[in-house]
């Protein structure tokens, strides 16, 4: 049974999880999600690439009130969002497992349940703290 995700174009693979970005063959800029052109140098010579799955917290915040539509959730609880430095690119995503973070903390890409649709969980990507 396959894992259902919020948007399949975000992923290079789901098991194991890897995000799909794109890289420009001219200037090496990496972007996420993948696109058909390079916003840094305007080239269209770009290709889809799997992004690194480990990084460090570049910034974080915790969302204390429910966002407006089209936000979907089974039941709201405050959750964290952050920017994670993966090396070639800094990616925005959920930070899962706790609601207080430290810039520089090491994290790893994971899947997290976003909502339930017709009885089945739908997952998004997020980052979790490495076990100590």
């Amino acid at each position: 049974m396959s894992i259902e995700v919020v948007d399949s174009t975000l992923f290079m693979s789901v098991e194991p999880v890897a995000l799909a970005g794109s890289v420009c063959r001219v200037c090496n800029s990496h972007v996420f999600p993948s696109m058909g052109s390079c916003p840094t140098c305007s080239s269209v010579d770009v290709t889809k690439i799997a992004l690194p799955t480990m990084g460090t917290i570049w910034s974080w915040t915790t969302q204390h009130f429910p966002p407006k539509a089209p936000f979907r959730t089974d039941e709201f609880a405050p959750f964290s969002i952050g920017y994670v430095d993966l090396g070639p690119v800094i990616v925005e995503g959920w930070l899962v497992g706790k609601t207080h973070w430290v810039i520089g903390e090491s994290v790893r890409l994971t899947l997290a349940k976003a909502w339930t649709h017709e009885g089945s969980p739908v997952y998004t990507y997020g980052f979790e703290a490495l076990e100590r």
Binding site: T61, F71, R72
Partner: peptide, 26 residues
Amino acid sequence: IGEWYGETGMMVTTSYFALKIQRYLF
């Protein structure tokens, strides 16, 4: 941006302001 961005609660201006100043203070 794809609908997923709003559906997962990332399309929020207050979180942008917070993320930006959080990094700047640091």
